[in-house]
Protein backbone atom coordinates (compact mmCIF):
# COMPACT_ATOMS: atom_id res chain seq x y z
CA UNK A 1 0.00 0.00 0.00
CA UNK A 2 1.21 3.49 -0.88
CA UNK A 3 0.01 5.90 1.80
CA UNK A 4 2.39 8.82 2.20
CA UNK A 5 1.88 10.74 -1.04
CA UNK A 6 -1.88 10.30 -1.10
CA UNK A 7 -2.39 11.70 2.39
CA UNK A 8 -1.19 15.12 1.18
CA UNK A 9 -4.20 15.49 -1.11
CA UNK A 10 -7.55 16.91 -0.06
CA UNK A 11 -10.46 14.49 0.24
CA UNK A 12 -12.14 16.04 -2.81
CA UNK A 13 -8.99 15.74 -4.91
CA UNK A 14 -8.16 12.22 -3.79
CA UNK A 15 -11.71 10.93 -4.14
CA UNK A 16 -12.72 12.75 -7.30
CA UNK A 17 -15.95 10.77 -7.70
CA UNK A 18 -17.48 12.60 -4.74
CA UNK A 19 -17.69 15.88 -6.63
CA UNK A 20 -18.50 14.12 -9.92
CA UNK A 21 -21.47 12.41 -8.29
CA UNK A 22 -22.68 15.61 -6.60
CA UNK A 23 -22.43 17.41 -9.96
CA UNK A 24 -24.36 14.60 -11.63
CA UNK A 25 -27.17 14.92 -9.09
CA UNK A 26 -27.26 18.69 -9.59
CA UNK A 27 -27.49 18.29 -13.38
CA UNK A 28 -30.33 15.79 -13.26
CA UNK A 29 -32.25 17.87 -10.71
CA UNK A 30 -31.82 20.94 -12.91
CA UNK A 31 -33.51 19.07 -15.76
CA UNK A 32 -36.86 18.95 -13.95
CA UNK A 33 -39.15 21.34 -15.83
CA UNK A 34 -41.25 23.86 -13.87
CA UNK A 35 -44.47 22.53 -15.35
CA UNK A 36 -43.66 18.98 -14.25
CA UNK A 37 -42.42 19.65 -10.73
CA UNK A 38 -45.62 18.31 -9.13
CA UNK A 39 -45.83 15.25 -11.40
CA UNK A 40 -45.94 12.05 -9.43
CA UNK A 41 -45.70 8.56 -10.94
CA UNK A 42 -48.88 6.55 -10.88
CA UNK A 43 -47.08 3.32 -10.11
CA UNK A 44 -48.88 0.06 -10.61
CA UNK A 45 -47.66 -1.07 -7.18
CA UNK A 46 -49.98 1.40 -5.45
CA UNK A 47 -47.23 2.67 -3.14
CA UNK A 48 -46.16 6.21 -2.37
CA UNK A 49 -43.92 8.11 -4.80
CA UNK A 50 -42.15 11.42 -4.41
CA UNK A 51 -43.20 14.03 -6.96
CA UNK A 52 -40.27 15.20 -9.10
CA UNK A 53 -39.86 18.29 -6.91
CA UNK A 54 -40.09 16.22 -3.74
CA UNK A 55 -37.21 14.09 -4.94
CA UNK A 56 -35.09 17.23 -5.18
CA UNK A 57 -36.37 18.46 -1.82
CA UNK A 58 -35.38 15.16 -0.23
CA UNK A 59 -31.88 15.28 -1.74
CA UNK A 60 -31.46 18.90 -0.57
CA UNK A 61 -32.70 18.01 2.92
CA UNK A 62 -30.31 15.08 3.18
CA UNK A 63 -27.32 17.21 2.19
CA UNK A 64 -28.37 19.78 4.80
CA UNK A 65 -28.86 17.13 7.47
CA UNK A 66 -25.47 15.51 6.91
CA UNK A 67 -23.59 18.79 6.57
CA UNK A 68 -25.10 19.83 9.90
CA UNK A 69 -24.19 16.47 11.43
CA UNK A 70 -20.54 17.07 10.52
CA UNK A 71 -20.82 20.46 12.23
CA UNK A 72 -22.43 18.99 15.35
CA UNK A 73 -26.03 20.07 14.81
CA UNK A 74 -29.13 17.93 14.50
CA UNK A 75 -31.39 20.89 13.77
CA UNK A 76 -34.13 20.31 11.19
CA UNK A 77 -34.72 24.02 10.66
CA UNK A 78 -35.19 24.89 7.01
CA UNK A 79 -35.91 21.31 5.91
CA UNK A 80 -38.52 20.82 3.20
CA UNK A 81 -39.82 17.63 4.75
CA UNK A 82 -42.20 18.32 7.63
CA UNK A 83 -43.48 14.84 8.34
CA UNK A 84 -42.25 11.29 7.79
CA UNK A 85 -44.10 8.19 8.92
CA UNK A 86 -42.69 5.21 7.01
CA UNK A 87 -41.77 4.04 3.52
CA UNK A 88 -45.37 3.46 2.41
CA UNK A 89 -47.12 6.55 3.80
CA UNK A 90 -46.92 9.91 2.00
CA UNK A 91 -44.20 12.23 3.28
CA UNK A 92 -45.17 15.83 3.93
CA UNK A 93 -43.24 18.71 2.39
CA UNK A 94 -43.68 22.44 2.70
CA UNK A 95 -44.30 24.23 -0.57
CA UNK A 96 -41.62 26.07 -2.47
CA UNK A 97 -41.02 27.23 -6.00
CA UNK A 98 -38.69 25.18 -8.17
CA UNK A 99 -36.20 28.07 -8.01
CA UNK A 100 -36.29 28.01 -4.19
CA UNK A 101 -35.83 24.26 -4.11
CA UNK A 102 -32.90 24.42 -6.52
CA UNK A 103 -31.36 27.21 -4.45
CA UNK A 104 -31.55 25.05 -1.32
CA UNK A 105 -29.91 22.17 -3.20
CA UNK A 106 -27.08 24.51 -4.17
CA UNK A 107 -26.81 25.97 -0.70
CA UNK A 108 -26.54 22.58 1.00
CA UNK A 109 -23.98 21.48 -1.59
CA UNK A 110 -21.94 24.54 -0.60
CA UNK A 111 -22.00 23.43 3.04
CA UNK A 112 -20.30 20.17 2.04
CA UNK A 113 -17.48 21.78 0.08
CA UNK A 114 -15.28 22.75 3.09
CA UNK A 115 -15.28 19.10 4.16
CA UNK A 116 -14.03 18.05 0.74
CA UNK A 117 -11.13 20.47 1.18
CA UNK A 118 -9.94 18.66 4.33
CA UNK A 119 -6.79 16.54 4.07
CA UNK A 120 -7.29 12.91 3.10
CA UNK A 121 -5.82 11.91 6.47
CA UNK A 122 -8.99 13.28 8.14
CA UNK A 123 -11.22 10.90 6.18
CA UNK A 124 -11.28 8.09 8.71
CA UNK A 125 -11.66 10.38 11.71
CA UNK A 126 -14.83 11.60 13.41
CA UNK A 127 -15.32 15.36 13.27
CA UNK A 128 -15.71 17.48 16.41
CA UNK A 129 -19.37 17.70 15.40
CA UNK A 130 -20.05 13.98 15.02
CA UNK A 131 -18.23 13.35 18.30
CA UNK A 132 -20.41 15.96 20.04
CA UNK A 133 -23.63 14.45 18.68
CA UNK A 134 -22.46 10.97 19.60
CA UNK A 135 -21.73 12.00 23.17
CA UNK A 136 -25.10 13.77 23.47
CA UNK A 137 -26.88 10.67 22.19
CA UNK A 138 -24.93 8.42 24.52
CA UNK A 139 -25.73 10.64 27.50
CA UNK A 140 -29.43 10.77 26.63
CA UNK A 141 -29.64 6.98 26.35
CA UNK A 142 -27.81 6.46 29.62
CA UNK A 143 -30.12 8.91 31.36
CA UNK A 144 -33.08 6.99 29.96
CA UNK A 145 -31.59 3.76 31.31
CA UNK A 146 -31.21 2.26 27.83
CA UNK A 147 -28.52 -0.16 26.64
CA UNK A 148 -25.74 1.81 24.97
CA UNK A 149 -23.41 -1.07 24.06
CA UNK A 150 -24.26 -1.13 20.34
CA UNK A 151 -23.88 2.64 20.05
CA UNK A 152 -20.59 2.58 21.95
CA UNK A 153 -19.25 -0.21 19.76
CA UNK A 154 -20.13 1.77 16.64
CA UNK A 155 -18.59 4.99 17.93
CA UNK A 156 -19.00 8.48 16.44
CA UNK A 157 -19.45 8.74 12.67
CA UNK A 158 -16.33 9.39 10.67
CA UNK A 159 -16.07 11.88 7.83
CA UNK A 160 -15.81 8.98 5.37
CA UNK A 161 -18.95 7.37 6.67
CA UNK A 162 -21.00 10.57 6.40
CA UNK A 163 -19.72 11.73 3.00
CA UNK A 164 -19.83 8.30 1.35
CA UNK A 165 -23.29 7.48 2.63
CA UNK A 166 -24.58 10.85 1.54
CA UNK A 167 -23.15 10.33 -1.94
CA UNK A 168 -24.52 6.78 -2.28
CA UNK A 169 -27.93 7.78 -0.92
CA UNK A 170 -28.33 10.63 -3.35
CA UNK A 171 -27.20 8.52 -6.31
CA UNK A 172 -30.14 6.23 -5.60
CA UNK A 173 -32.60 9.12 -5.64
CA UNK A 174 -30.89 10.79 -8.60
CA UNK A 175 -31.30 7.57 -10.59
CA UNK A 176 -34.99 7.26 -9.75
CA UNK A 177 -35.55 10.88 -10.79
CA UNK A 178 -33.55 10.34 -13.99
CA UNK A 179 -35.50 7.17 -14.83
CA UNK A 180 -38.82 8.94 -14.33
CA UNK A 181 -37.74 11.88 -16.49
CA UNK A 182 -36.57 9.51 -19.22
CA UNK A 183 -39.85 7.63 -19.08
CA UNK A 184 -41.62 10.98 -19.55
CA UNK A 185 -39.61 11.53 -22.72
CA UNK A 186 -37.03 14.05 -21.55
CA UNK A 187 -33.44 13.80 -22.74
CA UNK A 188 -31.42 13.75 -19.55
CA UNK A 189 -27.73 13.86 -18.73
CA UNK A 190 -26.46 10.28 -18.48
CA UNK A 191 -23.06 9.07 -17.35
CA UNK A 192 -23.80 5.48 -18.34
Amino acid sequence: MDTAAGQQLSIGAAIAMLRIYFDYTDQVCAAVPEDRMDWRPDGADGGYYFSLAESIQHIADTRLQFARQLEGSDSEEGSWNTGYTDSVSPWEFRRGSLAEIMQSLKSSRGMLEPWLERPLADLIQPTAGTRKLYEERLRARREAGEDTSALEARGPSTLASVLFFLSAHEQGHRAVLQTQLRQLGYTIEKMA
Partner: peptide, 17 residues
Amino acid sequence: IGHEQSHRGALQALLRL
Protein backbone atom coordinates in the same frame (compact mmCIF):
# COMPACT_ATOMS: atom_id res chain seq x y z
CA ILE B 1 -21.36 1.62 -3.93
CA GLY B 2 -22.52 4.92 -5.45
CA HIS B 3 -22.66 3.40 -8.94
CA GLU B 4 -24.55 0.41 -7.66
CA GLN B 5 -27.09 2.50 -5.74
CA SER B 6 -27.74 4.41 -8.92
CA HIS B 7 -28.62 1.27 -10.88
CA ARG B 8 -30.47 -0.20 -7.92
CA GLY B 9 -32.60 2.96 -7.81
CA ALA B 10 -33.39 2.82 -11.52
CA LEU B 11 -34.18 -0.91 -11.41
CA GLN B 12 -36.39 -0.44 -8.38
CA ALA B 13 -38.26 2.45 -10.02
CA LEU B 14 -38.95 0.33 -13.11
CA LEU B 15 -40.08 -2.68 -11.07
CA ARG B 16 -42.47 -0.49 -9.11
CA LEU B 17 -43.86 1.16 -12.23
